[in-house]
Amino acid sequence: MTPDLEAATERYLELIGRADEYGAVDLVVGLIDGGVPAEDVLLRVIAPGQRRVGELWASNEWSVAREHGATAVSERAVAAVSGHVRPAPTRGRVAVACADGEYHALPTRIMAEVLRLRGWDVDFLGASVPGPHLITHLHQTGPDVVALGCTLPTRLPRAHATIAACQAVGIPVLAGGAGFGADGRYARLLGADAWAPTADAAADRLAAGLPSFPAAYNGAAHLGDEEYTYLTRHRAELLSRVMDTLRESYAPMGGYSARQLEHTGEDLGHLADFLIAATYVHDASLFTDFVTWTCRVLVARNVPAESVVLGLGVFHDVLTDCPRARALLTEGVTAARTCCAVRRTETSV
């Protein structure tokens, strides 16, 4: 009998939703004992369950605390799978790490476990691995490849530095995770030796073999230009100018509490970070996708998408000396306006 994995995923979501660690661990271990391959438990129960958690948070059905609780339980569930099934390594050695500043470790952790299940000797270095720590580890252990996970594109500049550093010590890099773009375009742009969209694809790609020494790559020399440097260096100053201008032009902000102001500051900070990342990789869709997503998240929290249009407009006006960033912001405003329009249509229906 093959257990119904979709039903199992529903059950799993329910358990992690109430942070029932023991229930979740019992469920995944029970599935494995019932004959479900451990890789399927990781990729067809835990991973989809965890994706749902993200969606539930975005649609404001789950609180941040509940989302974090569920994720912590999933970490334990993944650990339980890896403790339960321990194949002896038959292949080479892989160092798996999250990009510096990347705290969404679970997808990368799942990739590490899938590689381990496929016979690789895996060192999982965890969330947000600073470059120097990773390179020291590479010198000490000499793996065949580094698998680098990046979930948020805002980490791309630092991921880029990490990729280059790994290659400089002669170890090829496989890039994975949504941060590298749905089609892996940023992985290629940053000169990764390979890219895989999912954990099992990563395992297949490694099985196919990577060059034992990374090829010299100069294609990313144009990244991190003047505008990117300017924005990175003046981020704080820029944000406070945007906040001040907003406060003048948007009356309701006068009544904001300190916490509300801090939240607004954080939201603007995220917009700035995605703007900076889009400037880095020269790709408008990185920014507009985030704008669209932000509008959706805010609307779910009863914050009108018009506030995003307003905020982006202020960024645009403040950034007088950055033509590329201004062009990105114009595209962002268009994307946010589309969201407003969609929202109005939905409301009128």
Binding site: A19, A65, H68, A72, V73, R76, D100, G101, Y103, S128
Partner: peptide
């Protein structure tokens, strides 16, 4: 205060993450 009800490892991870994000590199 936003961590009420979280498993303790999630709580610690969240606080560390917030402090790291605050540092901004």
């Amino acid at each position: 205060a936003t961590c009420a009800g979280m498993p303790v490892d999630a709580l610690v991870e969240r606080l560390e993450q917030l402090s790291t994000e605050w540092l901004r590199g």
